[in-house]
Nucleic acid binder design. Sequence first.
RNA 1: GGCCCCAUGGUCAAGCGGCUAAGACGGCGCCCUCUCAAGGCGCAAUCACGAGUUCGAUUCUCGUUGGGGUCACCA
Length: 491
Amino acid sequence: MRIRTRFAPSPTGFMHVGNLRTALYEYLTAKHEGGSFVLRIEDTDQERYVEGATQVIYDTLKLAGLTHDEGPDIGGDYGPYVQSERKDIYKPYAEQLVKDGKAYYCFCSKERLDSLRQNAPEGTVVGYDRHCRNLSSEEVEANLKAGLPYVIRQKMPTEGESTYTDLVYGDITIPNDELDDQILIKADGFPTYNFANVIDDHTMGITHVVRGSEYLSSTPKYNALYEAFGWDIPTYIHLPLINGKSVDEEGNVTVSKLSKRHGSTGFFDLVNEGFLPKAIMNYIALLGWCPSGEYENQEIFSMEELIKAFDINGISKSPSVFDYDKLEWMNGEYIKLMDKDEFLSNAKPYYDELNVSPDTYDMLEELLKPRITRFTQIPEKLAFMKSLENYDLDLYEHKKSKSTKETALDALESAIPVLEECDWNRDALGEAIKNLAEKKEVKNSVIMWPVRIAAAGVAVTPGGCSEVLILLGKEESLRRINIGLNRLKGN
RNA sequence: GGCCCCAUGGUCAAGCGGCUAAGACGGCGCCCUCUCAAGGCGCAAUCACGAGUUCGAUUCUCGUUGGGGUCACCA
């Protein structure tokens, strides 16, 4: 059997990383077996329509590297792939069920349903009371003729229990009296999500339904539908949820569904913060799934490797906490793996902002690669290049480097003429400073420390003395060192 | 509240009756070093609790506790 999975997001304009991980697992489930990955847009909720939201979905999948084989934008043999364009196919199915005595028209008003809920005994939650389940056909006819608004509900069994098998969670059994007579067709004529989902999955030939574990307890409702139509029930793969962790003012740690208060949860929010799509996908692949065999203990995976390594048996049952620190680390790993071109194209916008000389691109890559975990950190790392801040002279004091204000003054004074004569490249600068230190019979650091401080005006710089001087250029470096010298002299 | 699911370090997690209970992130320490990183080496830190099954339970069963999910004319 050729596996077919689908990603069925609703166009809300926002792609939660949890949804994206579901999409990833759907993609991997299909691709690992050489199957098809289908994109379907679930837009049956007309009130929630958001302009341009579908584009966000396409953009996300593209950036994330999840290439769908069928979808609204590329077509396929099972279209249309947008539910609102399929509107007309759902109702006949529902009416068929009514004809078969497996569903019924319900004329209950929203108000009646609300009061039903409000009048429920305290602390309990009640479902629909099946008021219209046994209306006589005359009553139904009359109501329809009178133009009363109606929905179509499915008759659910009221006793016994339902069991199904999930590939991750095993056998799940739910008492049937927990199952409501669910609405299939809404008063606006649109199908409910549940109903459309089943019709679409079946008519699109979906073999494996991969979704979040929040559907675990409502799956029997879906199955009841498959059974009512006499269709095969798909293979279910429910995924553990992704949580976030937060600490309140009193120091209490709480874990709950990943949401904004834990940090960014939108795919594009993360991308805008500097997280690379590949790193995000790699990270969420490992959230709730663990590779085994030859891939055991591997952390960095390309999409191709994920496809090869993916195994449903490795999916865990318990929810996991989204760890931004680990994502940050992984992002840094991806940066380290970049080749020259890729690194530069990512860094270039920030370089341009600082008027970085192309002569220093290679050196900057070398300096920055181990020091950044996101490209957005570049401005902060190179802030010293922008201007010389009015730094504290105590910076010249450094015990380990054996630097004091006195030695610093002397170092700068003697370094200036040397630097003025020096070629402005790494080797020459390094050599010149070493020679100077040798001549003065001091440690290299006695010269390097104050020169770097004078040039940068901050204690922490990416790279050392020579690198800082090169980044600033000869003229600017000497200007700054002279300023440092004057300040040390007390002017 | 009913129902369903889950339970190994701070986090991701391996384990699928017998192990000094992997690995990674984070933390800490050391080395390297003109700063900060990176890198190398090392350390600390986990089987929620209680019964039962068994020669032997992290692993199997039951219960307790804790956590999560779900009970819409939302998807």
